[in-house]
Design a protein around this nucleic acid. Structure first.
Lengths: 381, 381
DNA sequence: CTTGCTGCGGTAAGCGCTTACCACGCCAAT
DNA sequence: ATTGGCGTGGTAAGCGCTTACCGCAGCAAG
């Protein structure tokens, strides 16, 4: 059987359609773009030719002409990949997490407006990250940047290529930023730990040292602790990196040197908390009995670990969708209505803080059940 | 403070650079594309102008000119989203799974070759999926299609726009396909259950009825069962949909009508197995004590559930990377070296099949530990 | 001194679209 | 019968690049 290389031939162009329909390329274009110009009879001829040839306009040509690519880009930092003992590649963090969920939110919102999502990742060393991001920028109408993918000093340069929205960063003169409300969320969490549980010693296990989110969360926690006259510790030995490995490493270190430990460890995010719980479990330390642990974000796995993680829920999906909407509003007319968008957060009490969480537990179960059922039905249809 | 709308002005074009450097646009282009033509002195002038203006060539214009966008697309089927009782949106399946891992593999491989990844998803009803995919196709140099995003009859039409590679489908005259080796993997799993564990009754909980993977896996299992004279059941009441919800639903149904159950349930994929175990646990049925359960794929969560899931490992990451490589080879010259690429699979024995798995467990732990450590160190650097 | 290379670099065509501009024919109004 | 308006659709310019083609020096060979 001769496998015809059916794809060496180029797809039809608008000229082919025009010829087939016996009209000019202008008319073809007008029909395709829903102008009211061409009359019905012409329109039909064009449409028929389009159908017969299977014509779809080329994106690049269209983009060049209308100065709109209908593509937005998102850049995130890839977590390191490791060769495991089995010889296969596994990644440090294996669940659908903060970044991934945000990206989904972006994608869904983009689809709604006829945009597609171009994804790019930079790795830890990110030596030529700058160049790669620049190139990517010129393939898009706008860019959404996750935390730590580009030195802030480069932002101005980037944003003169395309509009830029950052996630969990800070707004600048030229870029907008979308984030969760760290203040109210962390405030509620801190008061819960201090007043409801009566914990007298708290530690903050930080995210990246320069992360605005991490800094803001630490600040609020410190303030609440101070005003309640509760002991608060942090510092270099409590420096994590937003990854489970970072949390685990900090705990391993602390445990190894037999350091003093607080009654509750407030982590910069859920990932970190997961790492902490993992390490505590390995050392036979009971959570929350001996040490309470909390997270931030409410990523999906948080309610699947034991004990289930008490955390502050961010509307992760909406964070992404909002970022897209803001970016969209910047494309075309240059300025967004608002430069610093903050979405509400909410304390989610589960067991890792010491709550019995029976009610909560039942609720989660119910949700989970309903969810499975509903999804099952939908998928069957 | 007047926030200068620094981005209403268009980014510089090659003409701006040429003017600034006092040369023609041709020379600028030549310098940027590393031709040996322009002499050092000219080259320097150009480079300086480029740096001063912050010039980066426009992707669309470049694509139009060189007939290469350096973008590949991937389309996957989004799982349904459900309004939960809390009023927030959650998705049926919350972990980084088959599709996601493949996409990462694609993205990483693409980056290596200077390509970017355009992602698009279609939802369950996918009413205008066809049009959306077509449009997307013209924004890319090639397309990778996951299972069930497009009716096979439409494949020919699509592939006359751009080269197409399918995942876990079947190769056609015009498309290539990448998949795991179902035969050897399922064969090993079946023989393990039958000979090592001595189970006498097996059921196959299918994926989508028309999925080549699911069909192939079922076939091999049935053959092994037959040749060992072991009882094998499947059928409509064992029809899942590759989702956890599907597995759970099948079990709920079976349990509700008090149906007879086999000693071991072999699931079409890990997701399904997770759903099955969830439902069995809810009914207090011990896995693997009363019923053994196995999966397929070895997605990351498989080794984090209790009991840990015995499964057949597919090189998921490589599946994606391979798909990209094949697609890349089809871009430009029309035909891939091979149309049906199959990657090896491997039986992974954990506890859900009835193995004690202490050794395996220790190994997993070790890997996990090493992984965390290595990742932590890498991230710190 | 002419001829023929060779290295540089400018001119312009073209990639596949969209759309401003205009030509044309038709009909109502003068 | 001439004119002006309007609906229709063709012509061509332009989007921002790459590159084929060619002209022009400079220099070695005849």
């Amino acid at each position: 059987m001769p496998d015809l290389p059916a794809n060496i031939q180029q797809p039809p162009t608008i000229y082919d359609v025009a010829r087939a329909a016996g009209v000019s390329i202008a008319s073809v274009s007008r029909v395709l773009n829903g102008h009211r110009n061409p009359r019905q009879e012409t329109r039909d001829r064009v449409l028929q030719a389009v159908a017969e040839l299977g014509f779809v306009p080329d994106g690049a040509a269209r983009a060049l002409s209308v100065r709109l690519k209908e593509v937005v880009g998102v850049v995130f930092r890839r977590v390191p990949w490791v060769e495991s003992a089995e010889g296969t590649i596994t990644e440090e963090d294996e669940s659908l997490q903060f970044t991934d969920v945000i990206n989904r939110g972006i994608e869904v919102a983009a689809q709604l407006r006829g945009f597609n999502l171009l994804v790019g990742s930079v790795d830890v060393d990110g030596h030529d990250a700058h160049r790669r991001i620049m190139t990517m920028a010129r393939k898009c109408d706008g860019l959404i940047l996750h935390d730590r993918v580009l030195e802030p000093s480069r932002l101005a340069q980037l944003s003169q290529q395309v509009p830029v929205v950052t996630m969990a960063g800070v707004a600048t003169h030229v870029t907008a930023n979308v984030r969760g409300d760290n203040g109210s969320g962390m405030g509620a969490l801190a008061r819960h730990l201090i007043h409801d549980h009566g914990y007298l010693t708290l530690a903050y296990l930080a995210g990246h040292a320069d992360s605005p989110d991490s800094i803001a969360r630490r600040l609020v926690l410190a303030e609440e602790a101070a005003s309640a006259r509760v002991m608060f510790v942090d510092g270099p030995q409590w420096q994590g990196n937003y990854l489970a490995s970072g949390g685990a490493k900090v705990m391993r270190q602390l445990l190894a040197e037999n350091a003093w430990l607080p009654r509750a460890i407030v982590c910069a995010n859920d990932q970190t908390a997961l790492g902490v719980m993992y390490e505590l479990a390995r050392h036979g330390i009971d959570v929350p009995g001996e040490i309470a642990v909390t997270g931030f974000d409410d990523i999906p796995v948080s309610r699947h670990v034991r004990p289930r993680l008490t955390t502050v829920k961010q509307p992760i999906q909406e964070l992404g969708a909002t970022a897209f909407d803001v970016l969209r509003s910047m494309i075309g007319n240059g300025t967004p209505a608002e430069r610093d968008i903050v979405l509400p957060t909410k304390l989610i009490r589960r067991e890792s803080c010491g709550c019995q969480g029976q009610g909560q537990s039942a609720q989660d179960q119910a949700i989970h059940g309903k969810e499975l059922e509903a999804a099952g039905n939908a998928a069957d249809s």
